[in-house]
């Protein structure tokens, strides 16, 4: 029983790490431009496909992981430069909706260039290898994605809080006009923001590919399940996104194990909607999520 629970928790944590990375990618761009970037979904897929492609070309595993992340980041920066930059100063809702179509476009490109068939994510160890922890068998894949997720999250926080670029990013996020007045090149900073968000997407894609161990063009739609985490954490808060990502990952796995069977016919696949239900319940109490900023409104 106890082993079962630990196994579930480990699964939930690694799912949560993936959600957290996905959510962080959304929040980073939201803070910089108040745009909810739906193009993040196909960027995840792109990351996973690039990783598979690079490995197939014979590039060592670690190197292709880094390569996939950087390339995805570059793609994100290119999207920013080509599509988002002309939209600066225009209606933010229209801009967000625009990203949906950028997403469709990228998704079609992935299908055209990568094909639709499923493939496994290559790993240097046996994909099904497990290690015993406290009496539970835990997939090595899960542990690696957990660790990689934590390292990336830590690195990102260091970047945001302790580097000059990070300070500039935070400045551009809080007030574009004031940042320009202080000589911060907001356009370039936005590009950098999108680049880092793309890197996170690349990593997220690799991890999502590793955990259920399949890569197909629909991989990015997992982001639909990460939305509750973003909202639960509060759109403005990277820390909230990460915490909520882990919470949602664990909740989803636990709901699948304990709630689905309890609900009978209605419970089939119920874990897919449970995070949304949980999010709605939390929002009733806290309309801006757990860590979101409640804006003071004046007429």
């Amino acid at each position: 029983m106890m082993g079962n629970l630990i196994q579930l928790l480990a699964g939930g944590l690694s799912l949560g790490a993936a959600y957290a990375l996905v959510a962080l990618g959304f929040v980073v761009i939201y803070r910089a431009s108040t745009v909810l970037n739906f193009a993040h979904m196909p960027l995840l897929t792109t990351g996973a496909f690039l990783m598979v492609g690079l490995c197939k070309m014979g590039v060592p595993w670690g190197l292709s992981a880094i390569g996939a992340m950087v390339l995805t980041g570059a793609l994100a920066a290119a999207v920013e430069r080509g599509v988002m930059r002309p939209m600066i100063g225009k209606d933010i809702v229209v801009t967000s909706i625009l990203t949906i179509f950028v997403a469709f476009f990228l998704e079609a490109m992935v299908i055209i260039l990568g094909g639709v068939e499923q493939r496994g994510m290559p790993t240097p160890w046996d994909t099904m290898r497990t290690v015993p922890i406290l009496g539970a068998k835990v997939l090595v894949n899960s542990l690696v994605s957990l660790a990689a997720g934590l390292v990336a999250l830590g690195g990102f926080f260091a970047l945001i809080n302790y580097t000059k670029l990070g300070v500039a990013m935070r400045a551009a996020a809080s007030d574009q006009e004031a940042s320009l007045a202080h000589g911060i090149p907001v356009g370039k900073i936005l590009s950098a923001t999108w680049f880092f968000s793309g890197v996170l997407a690349g990593l997220g894609g690799i991890m999502l590919g590793m955990f259920p161990n399949q890569v197909d063009p629909l991989l990015g739609t997992i982001a639909l399940r990460a939305f509750p985490a973003i909202i639960l954490g509060g759109l403005e808060s990277p820390l909230g996104a990460v915490l909520a990502g882990f919470i949602m990952g664990i909740l989803e796995v636990l709901a699948q194990a304990y709630l689905n069977p309890a609900l009978g016919a209605f419970g089939q696949n119920f874990h897919g909607v449970f995070p949304y239900l949980f999010m709605i319940l939390v929002l009733i109490v806290r309309p801006h999520g757990l860590f979101g900023v409640q804006e003071v409104k004046r007429a």
């Binding site: 967000s96 939305f227 909202i231 209605f266 897919g272 309309p287 979101g292």
Partner: peptide, 18 residues
């Protein structure tokens, strides 16, 4: 704003599931 949008997305999935 987006908070409402995601709640309506949740509604969509709930209706879908039901």
């Amino acid at each position: 704003g987006y908070y409402l949008a995601i709640v309506t997305l949740g509604l969509l999935f709930l209706v879908n599931h039901t």
